[in-house]
Nucleic acid binder design. Structure first.
Lengths: 140, 140
DNA sequence: CGGCATTATCTTGACGTCAAGACAAACGTA
DNA sequence: TACGTTTGTCTTGACGTCAAGATAATGCCG
């Protein structure tokens, strides 16, 4: 079947497992990604939709949709930039901050448990190969 | 960022690249998977939707949808099993046979080119790690 | 200053997928 | 034989995504 087919299967399995973790916090993978990216950004944990888009691999329409839902759930706020009226700024609310901290902790555990079947050497090798593939794909 | 995040990015890149190959033959990844699976099955290249489902990671509703479209395009036929009226049988048409042979050849080339950044040792290590992850996920 | 290309975001319509359940046929057991 | 369970497929409704285009503000250059 080959490595690419296997990679696809593994990806789907991991996605499902991680989705269960997100669901425990009332999130899906899409929402989690946005909140986690905001959380990693320096205080006040705010980025524009465009900045969020470039770090995830999604289009603008998808981003609008994601932010809409998170805003409706009260986890982020969307306001317009005073300096540049084209820009919007998406910022974590207190509630969103608390939620993503809890979800992140849970997620780290899930990821660890998913990788327990590999030794640290194997993980390093896997990661190195994936890194090469990623670089090659993103450069071209 | 960790191996899992990288795996996700690599998966999305590969998916997009392979999708371009499929598109050249008027297919998408979904249709290609079905046709390729039928092609691999022994003559007369026919399987039930359930058999197709278990080898891909999709649900029954998705399978129905995929077969419907391929049938509309004249690439497969759907008939009912004489022995068991619950079963349906999906079979490659001549046209589907020709198309998937061409698409498969093209796809093999694409896959090869995607992996050229890795040595054969690296590919073997990657594959071994993915295999372990796959087994672990599918057993639990 | 005026016009034009650029940048940033949002809108629309279509697609593929899933989960849950509907339906029909086949099987097993009393 | 009759009936409940299991099996195999299809239907429905919702969701996340994308591509293409609309909208609006900005910056640049003549």
């Amino acid at each position: 079947m080959g490595p690419i087919g296997r990679l696809s299967r593994v990806f789907h399995h991991l996605t499902r497992r991680m989705g269960e973790t997100f669901a425990r916090h009332g999130l899906n993978a899409a929402g989690f990604d946005v909140l986690a990216t905001l959380r990693r950004s320096p205080p006040p944990h705010a980025l524009s939709p465009g900045e969020l888009m470039s770090s995830m691999m999604i289009t603008s329409g998808t981003m609008t949709n994601r932010v809409d839902q998170l805003a409706k759930a009260g986890l982020v706020t969307r306001r317009s930039d005073a300096r540049d009226a084209r820009r919007a700024v998406v910022e974590l609310t207190d509630e969103g901050h608390k939620l993503i901290d809890a979800a992140l902790a849970d997620h780290v555990e899930t990821q660890k448990s998913l990788l327990t079947v590999l030794s640290s050497d194997e993980i390093a090798q896997l990661d190195a190969a994936l890194f090469k593939l990623m670089k090659a794909a993103e450069d071209s």
